[in-house]
Design a binder for these strands. Structure first.
Lengths: 194, 194, 194, 194
DNA sequence: CATGAATGAGAGTTCATTCAT
DNA sequence: GATGAATGAACTCTCATTCAT
């Protein structure tokens, strides 16, 4: 069972997530979180010293999640192509869900805060490493194109970053998202496997 | 010759550019611009009502520039491949220059301001149209891959957006930038033209 | 004629003086000064960024005053003994006036604030220099005791500091003050001049 | 042997002394003391309801000490001059030790807190009484100057107060301290005993 | 007796924006 | 047209202190 402090922390993060989705990162003030959680100023500060600390928690948790899913897929002995399709599917669903608005908050945080920059770099790097692992796997299976796995992974990550930002800002039609994420398949697969 | 008012406006934009490069968009206040330009509060407000108006001016001017360059290249009868290489080269140089930090300001503006969202969408759309035009040209010449030109253009624009954001945030080695922008060539050219 | 800004500044200092006398330094907040002057938060901050800046202004002005009085007395060709008696008289009157409560504020400032420490040291040093000058004068006239003028001056200044603090804290009867300041005469004068 | 409660109290006072020396009185919060002692909020409050109560304990103990030393010296049958030299020596050593910084805390307490004012007056009064006793002794022995013992004692106490404050604020060279405290001897002794 | 989560008041500070001169 | 004094709304952050467990 979670301690009282941990339960409060969890509750704060849930409310903060809603706020970040609604208003982005920078527009959410500590006062907003106080009101949303029903905590007093001092009570909130005991758990988080800034909205920055909250979003860091959220981003780290998300990374943790993605890493776990990838490890599970590997453990289940899935093929690179299966994992890729899973990966694309997860992305599509994320982009179409309201949670995609969190991307906007994460971007703001990276742009506004020195620590945010760091976290963002860390997040990118974790994602690249995971993707690079997948690319190597596919190359070993002879299904993915040749080339430096890191460079290929960065290409995909940068493209997805751009797509996520665009979606968060302007919204995007499902058809647009499907066709765009499909380029990743196109790009990665050797011609005879497309 | 420029009127006095136009010269003041130009001077304000130059100083504001420096500030945006140094501090990003959101950290620049009207007070900062007053101090940098030596104008009084009231004096500045006569020309721009907010830092948002300043950055809009800057973004529009940049778009105008890119459009002109493209039109010139077309007028000079350059081939799609030549224009593509020019385009990639311009990008590389932008990414390696201090001006790439302006991308960060433009992103912040898009993320923080309702009007900024609009301008950003407008900017993306202009860029996509231009790129799409180029893609069609290359397809007609039989050098570029087949597929919906708009979709292909969006893919490139989204990827470049991601790359620009990453560069502005973390910085990037020249080698990294060259290898990444080179994927565009790889992606666009038919196998036998690579 | 004073500029508008200078008039406002003067008015703020007058109101702040009243507040410092009533409540000491640390208990006076920027909000208090806003209310006392009728200025808005921002309006006050344009002139003084903290109550510390206000008290520094007051202390510096007081020093300026004392220096001017001393120079005048010298210019008028007064004897060391005459100046000493003037000096003691001025002190007695200060200690018996409500203004003596400002000493408390100045002490608090010195004790609470790093800058205040500095200003206090500066104030002590100025006073010592002035007193030392007087001592040398009296020694040249053959009326004051022998000894290092700086050391003698420090002795007087330290004693007066103690007396001022005590008066500000506990209050003091006129008779007590007269008898105490009179020790300075006793201490300085050669036996045959007492 | 001390009860558990008394041992905790003693430990708190030791840690608080360190804090007061480091930061003065006003900057030390109950939170600081919690952290320094390792006690919880509630635990600390059981022993002391405020930092004021702590410093009162410390000041009272110090007074007790000085009184005991004086009584011992009397009981040992020391002469007034011997006691004076002891007294000056003790002072010099105090002023040169890190403990002199506690004076600053005591001053802050006197200046900031109504109760502190009282304690300070009480402390001054105790010191004056003790000093006055010594003066009378020296006068009876025919070694000290004539005059009202209380007035003489106050003079010394006020001077030492000034010196202690100056030392705590600016620091002071040993030579300066020795020469200054030596004035007390000079002031008290009849010319033929100097 | 002890713990530590929570309260709530209030100080400080900054800025976009207005408007009398 | 320009100046710069002034407004007022918001937000951050910190503690002393209480009280359920």
């Amino acid at each position: 069972m979670l301690s009282k402090s941990e339960r409060t922390k969890k509750m704060i993060l849930e409310k903060a997530t809603e706020l970040f989705i609604q208003k982005g990162y920078s527009a959410v003030t500590m006062k907003d979180v106080c009101e949303a959680t029903g905590l007093s100023r001092g009570g909130l500060y005991r758990h988080f010293r800034s909205t920055g600390e909250m979003i860091i928690s959220l981003i780290r948790a998300e990374q943790q999640n993605a890493d776990n899913e990838f490890k599970e897929a590997l453990a289940e002995g899935k093929s690179a192509l299966q994992i890729l399709d899973l990966f694309i599917d997860t992305h599509n669903r994320f982009l179409l869900s309201p949670k995609s608005a969190l991307e906007l908050a994460a971007n703001q945080f990276a742009l506004l805060d020195e620590k945010g920059k760091q976290i963002n770099a860390e997040r990118a790097w974790t994602t690249v490493k995971r993707t690079s692992h997948l690319v190597r796997l596919g190359q070993e299976e002879g299904v993915f194109i040749d080339g430096d796995p890191d460079s290929i992974a960065w290409h995909i990550v940068l493209f997805l970053g751009g797509l996520r930002t665009k979606t968060a800002l302007d919204g995007a039609e499902p058809a647009f998202i499907y066709s765009q994420t499909n380029w990743i398949r196109d790009f990665l697969l050797k011609p005879n496997f497309k």
